[in-house]
Design a protein around this nucleic acid. Structure first.
Length: 601
RNA sequence: GGCCCCGUAGCUCAGCCGGAUAGAGCAGCAGCCUUCUAAGCUGUUGGUCGCAGGUUCGAAUCCUGCCGGGGUCGCCA
């Protein structure tokens, strides 16, 4: 029902435009009787060939349509080529191999694309594939039992960049944080904070007992409670003080977490409380379970004992189960613990039901690798609770291993002694953390070296990409000697450069840069659809490499430099190219949440 | 034992929901560069895409089974 790509989008994207031409040609051949009409074109793609010698673009149209059309691939390819020959975008077109159609575009097509960049500015690459669909991205969701540690930051950065990317591609994105403020852990937090409270009242409580949170970060919570309640809480029963202390501790921890996230430039639109799902009559959890029960998806039954490591206090008992096996899970899953309270899973079903009720048909959860075993049941739950109307994609971010100069940074298991997110950001900076977290596929483990990411070398991709942007900016500063009227403001400058004599761009390095720039919209759209922001980071690294390579050519070949003292026309054309590179670098870095500096002295 | 992820050049990793002779960086080798911002550039060596089957015009990519590494396995979140 939803078309593969809209006409508007095809106009934005050079590859989409060529795909449009190919499809039109095939339809024309159908109308002329050469081919059957009504062919399914959904498998036809136009993409850059692996080998640049094959041209700028290649399409598989003849191969995927051969069977439908009842023709041999090469014969079909010849027919399509005949229909496309003479297209003003196309300089050369030929059949190759088993039936590929290789296309070389005219120079003018690439110049036009550069003009599109200059016109669009940092909107270049924006897409409407999302069509305004609401999508919920849930990320971080760290327990509010202490400050964020370094393990949290990969998910935080990944989720944030993915949300940026989706928004850039026309989705209506909600960034969400699920606060685990229910369950035993926050009760332990409350008891730990209560000790600090008594301490604040002058009591000697001795060492923090085993099983409590010993971290110093709870001292201010105790002090705040003492300031607010005096000694009033001390002599009350735990049942009375615990909710008060718990709420205070959670809210103070969440404030700290928000601060930590702000240091990383990560923000959320919605902070959703798990506890809120258990209040009311019926509570959202109870209502959700009842609804599933009515559909035969919740029942009382027994589970086989877990395999592998024997569970010591295992007892065979009848319990309330969700029939997740009906949706592809391996085993049905319990909803109520032995103490009568809901399992985390029960809350999570209600939580995702809430997302659906709030209008989200697409949901993305970003989880740490240790939650991988939870994916099937959650997807089963979403399928059940939305009757298959919503889709949940769970993105797993793998472990980050911290190094400093090649040596592992030791992290003691002893509670309270961990590397916090804030420490890392303070040491190497937000940009380095963010870029490196994205310079690897999310499901691969990542080695993060605190020494390397502040190095100023090609080994450090953060520096390399940012320096590419700064280098471009430096050309504009220096170019005023030759082009005094060059505007300083980026938008005005782009406008000015639209009149450049782009046909003067004819050096191989320049053409290469033009073509790389034109890839950007494709990369963005692919990354958004695949939920893979790392593709943007890799693309930016490649683009920056191409710029640096071309730049260095100018060292010994002065005619390749961007600024040519006695040729302002050529200089302006090259400035337009630089503007294209800089614009795309800035746009991509912004999506990743990394600064694009004007200079890096 | 069940399930999930990973396995691609000596090292670190890409490979775009099946495409052409599998790529990049580092390291190695051979040169170049003293500049529009110095922290670089060019060329080159190097791979049985873990193994074995299957699906088809075509597989690193999809399916099955093994091998190796990591994670996880009612009541924790």
């Amino acid at each position: 029902m939803i078309p593969m790509s809209s006409p508007a989008q095809q106009q934005q994207n050079l590859f989409g435009r060529v795909l449009g031409r190919v499809c039109t040609a095939i339809e024309d051949l159908g109308a002329a009787g050469t081919l059957p009409t009504g062919l399914d074109l959904s498998q036809v793609v136009v993409e850059p060939p692996r080998d640049a010698a094959h041209g700028d673009m290649a399409t598989n149209a003849a191969m995927v349509l051969a069977r439908q059309a009842g023709m041999k691939p090469r014969a079909l390819a010849e027919a399509i080529v005949g229909a496309l020959r003479g297209d003003p975008l196309i300089a050369e077109i030929a059949v190759a191999g088993p039936g590929f159609i290789n296309i070389t575009l005219t120079r003018e097509a690439w110049y036009d694309e550069l003009r599109a960049v200059l016109r669009a500015g940092t909107d270049y690459g924006r897409s409407d594939v999302g069509r305004g669909q609401a999508i919920n991205v849930e990320y971080v969701s760290a327990n509010p039992t202490g400050p964020m540690h370094v393990g949290h930051c990969r998910g935080a950065v990944f989720g944030d960049a993915l949300a940026n990317l989706l928004a850039f591609c026309g989705y209506r994105v909600t960034r969400e944080y699920y606060i685990n403020d229910a369950g035993a852990q926050v009760d332990v937090l409350a008891r730990s904070a209560f000790l600090r409270y008594r301490e604040a009242l002058g009591e000697n409580v001795g060492p923090i007992p085993e099983g409590m949170y010993p971290g110093d970060y709870l001292i201010p919570v105790g002090a705040a409670l003492a300031a607010e309640y005096g000694s009033a809480l001390r002599d009350r029963s735990e049942a009375e003080w615990l909710p008060i202390v718990r709420d205070k501790a959670v809210s103070m921890m969440m404030a700290a977490i928000r601060d930590d996230l702000a240091a990383l430039n990560v923000r959320h639109d919605v902070f959703f409380s798990e506890r809120s799902l258990a209040v009311g009559d019926p509570s959202p959890i109870a209502a959700t379970i009842r609804e599933l029960e009515g559909r035969g998806l919740v029942y009382r039954g027994r589970l086989p004992p877990p395999k592998g490591q024997p569970v010591e206090d295992w007892e065979d008992r009848e319990q309330l189960l969700f029939r997740s096996t009906a949706y592809g899970d391996d085993i049905d899953r319990p909803l109520i613990k032995s103490d009568g309270s809901y399992t985390y899973f029960a809350s999570d079903i209600a939580y995702h039901a809430s997302k659906f009720a709030r209008g989200f048909r697409q949901m993305i959860d970003v989880w740490g690798a240790d939650h991988g075993g939870y994916i099937k049941r959650m997807q089963a739950a979403v399928a059940a609770v939305t009757q298959g109307a919503a889709e949940l994609d769970v993105k797993i971010v793998q472990l980050v291993r911290l190094f400093r100069g090649g040596e592992p940074v030791k992290m003691s298991k002893r509670a309270g002694d961990f590397v916090t997110l804030r420490e890392v950001v303070d040491e190497v900076g937000r940009d380095a953390v963010r870029f490196m977290m994205l310079f690897r596929k999310n499901d691969a483990t990542l080695d993060f070296d605190l020494a390397k990411v502040i190095e100023q070398s090609r080994d450090n991709p953060v520096f390399y990409v940012q320096y590419g942007h700064a280098r471009g900016q430096s050309v504009f500063r220096n170019a005023r000697e030759v082009v005094p009227e060059l505007p300083t403001d980026a938008a005005a400058r782009s406008q000015f450069l639209l009149n450049a004599a782009l046909e003067r761009l004819d050096q191989p390095g320049e053409i290469d840069l033009l073509k790389r720039i034109a890839q950007y919209p494709r990369v963005i759209e692919g990354a958004a659809l695949a939920h893979e922001p790392h593709r943007v980071a890799f693309y930016l690294y490649d683009l920056a490499s191409a710029l640096h390579a071309h730049w260095t050519q100018g060292n010994h070949l002065p005619h390749l430099r961007f600024i040519i003292l006695d040729d302002p026309i050529l200089t302006v054309a090259r400035l337009a190219l630089i503007q294209g590179v800089v614009t795309v670098l800035a746009s991509g870095l912004k999506l990743l949440g990394v600064d694009a500096p004007e200079e890096m002295r």
